[in-house]
Amino acid sequence: MKTSRLVGTAALLAVTAFGAQSALAYQAGDIYVRGGFEKTDPESGNGALYDNDIDVSDDTGFAYGAGYLFSNKFGVELNGSQTQKQDLSVGGNGVGNFDSTPVNLMVNYYPLGGISNARIHPYAGVGVNYTYFDNESFDADLDDSWGFAGQVGVDLSVTDNLLVGTWARYTDVDTDLDIDGTYKTRLDIDPVTVGAGVTYRF
């Protein structure tokens, strides 16, 4: 999609949202579901094996989330994405791929929560990430990972119930790579994820 078309779409969404006179802020008791797409980009330098650098590829896929606000300012959220297929290379040579499925449990803070005329809804959250690894196509196994997760995002009201938004998330994803049942090295994936989607609030 051309940049001009992206800018035009964003401007249209903004005008629509600011024109919605009945838009309400997030508030205690709200339940919401979210769907969209996100790109996961691992950090550079994911480890080394036999003195060769390891690289893990990025991937893009469907993202989901659901949450509940237990006060005007704070809520909990469970989010994640569809199983991603990522390529692994050692010393610049592809050796195979693997599946990773991330799930995050977050506590979010909404600085404008409870303000009735707010149409822009920023938030920030911290929590825990669990990533499940499976279907390694090469002769090795990757252990599942537990780690820290942090996110920031903003939603824009279109109606009382419908919002559009974007988010960015960092997750601490580290896994042991075992060959023939023996530990060989540690992969530091630690991806940054950027996404956009639609939220429906009940």
Rank of each mutant, 00 (worst) to 15 (best):
T3M: 12
T3D: 08
L6T: 10
G8A: 12
T9F: 13
A10G: 05
A10L: 14
L12P: 00
L12W: 12
L13F: 14
A14V: 14
A17G: 15
A20R: 08
Q21L: 07
A23E: 15
Y26F: 14
G29W: 07
G29D: 11
D30Q: 05
R34G: 11
R34F: 14
R34E: 15
G35A: 12
G35I: 07
G36T: 04
E38H: 09
T40I: 11
T40S: 13
T40L: 09
D41I: 09
P42F: 11
S44L: 07
G45P: 02
G47M: 05
N52R: 10
D53R: 10
D53K: 12
I54G: 03
I54F: 04
D55P: 01
V56T: 10
S57F: 03
D58T: 02
A63H: 05
A63Q: 05
G67A: 02
F70C: 06
S71V: 06
F74H: 07
G75L: 05
V76P: 02
V76A: 05
V76W: 01
E77P: 01
Q82E: 13
T83A: 11
T83L: 04
Q84M: 14
L88Y: 03
L88N: 07
V90Q: 10
V90I: 15
V90L: 10
G91D: 07
N93F: 13
G94S: 15
V95Y: 07
N97H: 12
N97R: 06
S100D: 03
S100N: 09
V103K: 13
N104I: 06
M106W: 08
Y109M: 06
Y110C: 03
G113R: 04
R119T: 15
R119W: 09
I120V: 13
H121L: 08
H121Q: 14
Y123V: 02
Y123S: 04
G125N: 05
G125T: 08
Y132D: 13
F133Y: 15
N135H: 14
E136G: 11
F138A: 05
D139W: 08
F148Y: 14
F148Q: 08
Q151F: 04
V154Y: 09
L156G: 03
S157R: 08
S157I: 04
S157A: 14
S157N: 12
V158F: 09
V158G: 00
D160C: 01
D160W: 05
L162T: 07
V164A: 10
T166P: 01
W167T: 09
A168I: 12
D172W: 09
V173R: 05
D176N: 12
D180T: 10
G181Q: 02
T185N: 03
R186Q: 15
R186P: 00
L187Y: 11
D188S: 13
I189P: 01
I189R: 10
V192Y: 15
V192E: 09
G197D: 09
Y200I: 01
F202G: 03
